[in-house]
């Protein structure tokens, strides 16, 4: 049975790359911002790059805030990538406080790097994802080797209130941050799986497999 995977189109992400990567792992994703298409999906990807406030503005502009909340509440699979992950949280301190979707508890804060002696910002490049408190079995990180390299491009990080939501952590210039989250069937990656070479594609493949299992089961 073919699965219906929708990549949310709110004019803020590198959607072409995500669509290509999903195709590469055997899915046939649909790019859409239509409420009925999204609510009828088996799995959704929320992409996003850039500023948090700009992302929320665009979700509001396309009337997607309640659509995504309703979808998440229906207990179906949702994956936020980069800014798309951050937006799942309560709020961000980027450019003054902005409210997020509030699906996962916690704020978004800047990586505490002040000058070039203790690191550089933004964090651009490859970082190792490391197991934290939650097992990766049965998640999007299933069969991914601990300390695999993923590609990051960000200045802000999620700080989940609940440690059990932390799927992986990553170190950058002596700062450890949450690099992926899981709360029920909601996932988020601070890294870009679509830009993380073969390992990243494997994460997306796992996600597509989870969606397939969801339908079969």
């Amino acid at each position: 049975m073919s699965v219906k995977i929708v990549v949310i189109d709110y004019k803020i992400g590198n959607t072409r790359s995500i669509m290509n990567a999903l195709k590469q792992v055997g899915a046939s994703p649909i790019l859409s911002n239509d409420e009925s298409v999204i609510s009828g999906a088996d799995g959704v990807v929320l992409p996003g790059v850039g500023a948090f406030s700009h992302g929320m503005e665009n979700l509001q502009k396309y009337s997607l805030v309640h659509v995504i909340r309703n979808y998440a509440e229906s207990n179906k699979l949702l994956l936020g990538i980069c800014l798309g992950m951050q937006i799942l949280f309560d709020s961000s301190e980027e450019f003054g406080e902005t409210k997020g979707l509030g699906l996962i508890e916690g704020p978004i804060c800047q990586i505490p790097i002040q000058d070039s002696n203790n690191g550089r910002l933004p964090h651009v490049g490859w970082g190792e994802i490391q197991q934290h408190s939650v097992s990766w079995d049965g998640t999007i990180l299933k069969n991914i080797e601990n300390y695999s390299d993923m590609y990051f491009a960000h200045r802000y990080v999620a700080v989940p209130d609940n440690g059990e939501n932390v799927l992986s952590v990553t170190s950058y210039s002596n700062h450890q941050f949450c690099s992926s989250v899981k709360k029920g069937r909601i996932y988020g990656c601070q890294f870009h799986p679509e830009k993380s070479s073969e390992m990243g594609l494997k994460v997306l493949k796992n996600y597509v497999d989870l969606i397939r299992q969801g339908i079969d089961g």
């Binding site: 790059v49 850039g50 500023a51 700009h54 800014l83 933004p122 651009v124 491009a153 960000h154 200045r155």
Partner: peptide
């Protein structure tokens, strides 16, 4: 950089 984010 305001529109696309500085990482871009």
């Amino acid at each position: 950089s305001k529109i696309f984010g500085s990482q871009c």
